[in-house]
Design a protein around this nucleic acid. Sequence first.
RNA 1: CGGGAUGUAGCGCAGUUUGGCUAGCGCGCUUGCCUUGGGAGCAAGAGGCCGGGGGUUCAAAUCCCUCCAUCCCGACCA
Length: 570
Amino acid sequence: MRTTELFAPTLREVPAEAEVISHQLLLRAGFIRRDAAGIYTYLPLAIRVLKKISQIIREEMDRQGGQELLMPIIQPAELWQESGRWDVYGPELFRLRDRHDREFALGPTHEEIITALVRGEVNSYKQLPLLLYQIQNKYRDERRPRFGLLRGREFIMKDLYSFDRDNEGLQVSYMKMHEAYTRVFRRCGLRFRPVEADSGAIGGSDTHEFMVLADSGEASVLFCENGECEYAANVEKAAPACATADSGEDQKPLGEVLTPGSHTVEEVAEFLRMPPHKIIKTLLYETEKEVVAALVRGDRDVNEIKLSNALTCLRLKLAGPDTVRDVTGAMVGFAGPVNLKGVKIVADPEVAAMVNAVCGANMDDTHLTNVNPVRDFTTDIVCDIRMVRAGEPCPRCGGALLEAKGIEVGQIFKLGDKYSKVLGAFFRDESGQSRPVIMGCYGIGVTRTMAAAIEQNNDKDGIIWPAAIAPYHAVVVPVSTKDESQMAMAEDVYGRLVGAGIEAMFDDRPERAGVKFKDADLIGYPLRITIGTKAITNNQVEIRVRRTGEVMIIPVDELDKYVMELLGRL
RNA sequence: CGGGAUGUAGCGCAGUUUGGCUAGCGCGCUUGCCUUGGGAGCAAGAGGCCGGGGGUUCAAAUCCCUCCAUCCCGACCA
């Protein structure tokens, strides 16, 4: 391909709309253009990258026995009504009507369609297991599309659905996908981590997210410092190491103390000259069903996802001052579990283990001292409801946990019989009994992966593509287009590369060298082959590695060998 | 969905407070000369329904009303 023919309009300045680096560089380097909020046109360079990512995904899905198919974007409302998600999905579902006023949705995901397909075609255990996947546009009417391709309303996603006879089969499929995902992201040249994640209200099954590590990531992950130990989890899911040991302290008699104006744990700790971990933090939450009190140690934060799982509630929000006053009789900052009536009390195990603690007295400007669980108050639920932080011990091996930011590029999820039951996908087992198909779903955001790769691989000059997903492997740059011998040699070099199966771009524009160098860096070709005066006199060309800036002078005859070798390491 | 901001040439912006515009600037674009190892220089050009609609006024990019779009913060996120 020649640059004079390439449709890749590059920009010198950063469009004002772009906040994150991947969005800025995709626009500046001529990969994408915006059509509406969260909706983009992919220009030729982007398509090449997306095809490469997709191809890697295909190969790895196929390796595990996956079969590709293609399902519609436009899906009938009836299926969504059957599964119940027509209502549950809410405004995030793009909806439309045809000329006969029949309702449809633009698919945000394809569980309904694939399950409907399978229920019609799969009747026997002999037809299982099945791994079916597609790479398709998906639609989610995000409340706030942002960050360019990282959170769009239209995006490309690979989704695979597994169908098994039972949970053992599902576990096999799940592990196949775990393996496939690891291979996909490794082949894409990305630094990533599979992490344990929260499965939400869907059911207590396993789920892992695949995170590309990048400081700009929206999600926080914790992982063990110990390289041998593979523990890694989303902060929402991360489990604490086993509860703290008994301090051996003797229980002292309950006391009451005035703490005027001390609303926060820090204020109380300072006022009473006590460490925050001796204080019980009592937070009142409202769910759709009730008001609950969540107890954690003063130096901890409540993990609302764990709390809502413990309560099996749909909505959870911190109670306002009026509710707090109604329930405790005191203003915010003085709530405590002792003599707290009419609310469910959920305590973290650390709280249950506290001795002679301090907590609010449910009276303005008053706290209780030497509070002891069981003796002084009862709890309805004791379970892990706190955030785990970096520096705490790993729950598996005791090593310290480290924190990193990540971009979720893939998720694997055990669905079980959730969709097969409601949509009626049953099969007959050996004994002739009818059983629901056991499903799993496994997604990879293809467009998001492209953006995440840039978030992780860039510098002040532009993108640095890993070779496996670069739009082209190398760009050939003659320094002076007017110099006929340089141009002739550049043509020759370009021809050799293409002949050797290397994807090369020939920058044949009559621009000054600086302009071509800048564009080469911006677009992020892994290798740049420069043809200058030295090339003519010595029959040597220069290879520059985009990532390191390393420059090599190579005899023309050995060029393709060197390029192949370099690409193998990039 | 709450809060905030912004819409002026392909991109980045000034002009709006205090109405007087025949709407500017930089980059990019076109043509010519010149230049060619990190976004050169000179010269001449092209390019605008100042987001849309409605009003006030002798006069509106500028004031008022109203839509729309985009971005940021928050909430939300199979």
